[in-house]
């Protein structure tokens, strides 16, 4: 089943493979070691916030777009859907997002 190509279905909830991640922060920058890929990634405050947001509970794509701005403390205009989708795609591409319910 290909899930990352079209994640907008409300029945699909997205979480984070927290067990695959080892993190270490230096100020605003977080180094993330992905146990599954053996790759080290560098997250900024926004990408780390998304990880934390999805770690709270799995959410559908629509919920993510709707609620992430408030989680960030900004209004939707400052955190448009396109930015959220692209960020989601970046995290999915490196294998950190988990489809937890279908």
């Amino acid at each position: 089943m290909t899930v990352s190509a079209n994640p907008n279905n409300d029945h699909w909830l997205w979480g984070v493979y927290t067990n695959h991640m080892v993190t270490h922060s230096f100020g605003d920058t977080t180094f993330v070691y992905n146990r599954q890929s053996g790759t080290t990634h560098i997250f900024n405050l926004v990408s780390m916030a998304m990880i934390e947001f999805l770690s709270e509970k799995p959410r559908s794509m629509n919920e993510i777009i709707r609620d992430f701005p408030a989680y960030m403390g900004v209004d939707a205009a400052e955190c448009p859907a396109g930015v959220v989708r692209r960020l989601f795609g970046e995290l999915d591409e490196i294998g950190l997002l988990e489809l937890v319910q279908s």
Partner: peptide, 14 residues
């Protein structure tokens, strides 16, 4: 976020 809107990646892979 403004940088993100301008297309700057939020994740860097080493």
């Amino acid at each position: 976020l403004r940088l993100g809107a301008a297309g700057v990646p939020m994740v860097l892979t080493l």
